[in-house]
């Protein structure tokens, strides 16, 4: 009697836990399904290549092409990488191999804090500090690729630093000692032995950074200008895919709405490819 009651409880618990775990898979499937069902018709009506390759986005005439926004996203992301990766990587190298214990104890939590700051606060900071700064320095309007790149560059710093540092820390100390014993200086050891050894982790951090930058929405909307056009210069505004969704979803209907969902679908595909690259790289680093 007691046995069967206990067994039943165990069975129920197993089913409950398995269901909870499965919900995760269900959520992913639902997200993909809903974006596909709602976005695919437009994508097919316009033709996927035309939709992605066309630069004209005119809801008024039901013409939907997101090429300029894809390029906008890529420009802004590339800009963020140009600024964020060297700074982040060098900071990670500093934290992993140069910093004294005390400096480390101060800087590391500070970097972790950076990861927790909400994107609206970053966006606001960009709006009130970086945009006016660019405006004054270069006598331009201010909102544009450069402002967005700077904001995103700061935003991806914690990701780059944390993942790169973990990779650098994981390099066996025998490599370092081996190089040192050959008479190489500390700096030389770090840059020509340790950093290359941690390369796959560093690349992984960059890929993660790309994922964060390309998916970031609110901070970008606030500083990027949002004009639908091909980039004309780093001081001029563009619109990213994420910004497009946020700006127009509020009033879009019918085909326009579907086109926005298709935009999200394209964005999701970008992200999935990035995730795939990341997990492949991680697997390679482990294997």
């Amino acid at each position: 009697m007691q046995k069967s009651a206990g067994a039943l409880r165990e069975r129920l618990a197993f089913i409950a836990f398995a269901t909870a775990a499965t919900l995760c898979v269900v959520a992913v499937l639902l997200i993909c399904a809903f974006l596909l069902i709602n976005g695919l018709p437009t994508l097919l009506r316009e033709g996927p290549f035309a939709f992605i390759g066309n630069t004209t986005w005119q809801p008024a005439t039901d013409t939907y092409g997101i090429f300029s926004m894809v390029v906008g996203s890529l420009y802004v992301t590339a800009g963020a990488l140009v600024l964020g990766v060297p700074l982040g990587l060098l900071t990670a190298i500093y934290l992993s191999r140069f910093a004294k214990a005390r400096t480390k104890r101060l800087l590391q939590p500070a970097v972790e804090l950076l990861a927790g700051i909400p994107s609206v606060v970053y966006g606001f900071f960009g709006l009130v500090v970086i945009v006016p700064l660019i405006r004054q320095l270069f006598k331009v309007q201010g909102m544009g690729i450069l402002a967005a790149s700077i904001v995103l560059g700061i935003m991806i710093l914690p990701t780059i630093i944390a993942v790169s540092k973990a990779a650098l820390d994981a390099v066996p100390s025998s490599y370092y000692e081996g190089a040192l014993a050959l008479g190489a200086s500390h700096e030389r050891c770090v840059f020509s032995i340790i950093v290359p050894a941690a390369l796959s982790g560093v690349v992984a951090s960059v890929i993660l950074g790309v994922g964060r930058a390309i998916g970031e929405t609110m901070a970008v909307v606030m500083v990027v200008g949002n004009q639908v056009r091909m980039p004309v210069g780093i001081f001029e505004g563009v619109r990213t895919m994420t910004a497009n969704i946020v700006l127009e979803m509020g009033y879009a209907a019918d085909l326009h709405r579907q086109a926005l969902i298709a935009t999200a679908l394209v964005l999701l595909i970008f992200i999935l490819v990035i995730n795939l690259l990341f997990s492949l790289l991680r697997k390679k680093a482990r294997g």
Binding site: A21, T22, V28, L30, L35, G215, T217, I261, I271
Partner: peptide, 28 residues
């Protein structure tokens, strides 16, 4: 096999940008 699937799902969910969640919430 379920474990592998759940891991992939969780990794995917972790990388999805929040605007896509927002859009999904809106649709669903």
């Amino acid at each position: 096999r379920l474990v592998g699937l759940i891991r992939i799902a969780a990794d995917t969910l972790a990388g999805v940008p929040s605007i896509v969640y927002g859009l999904f919430g809106l649709l669903f």
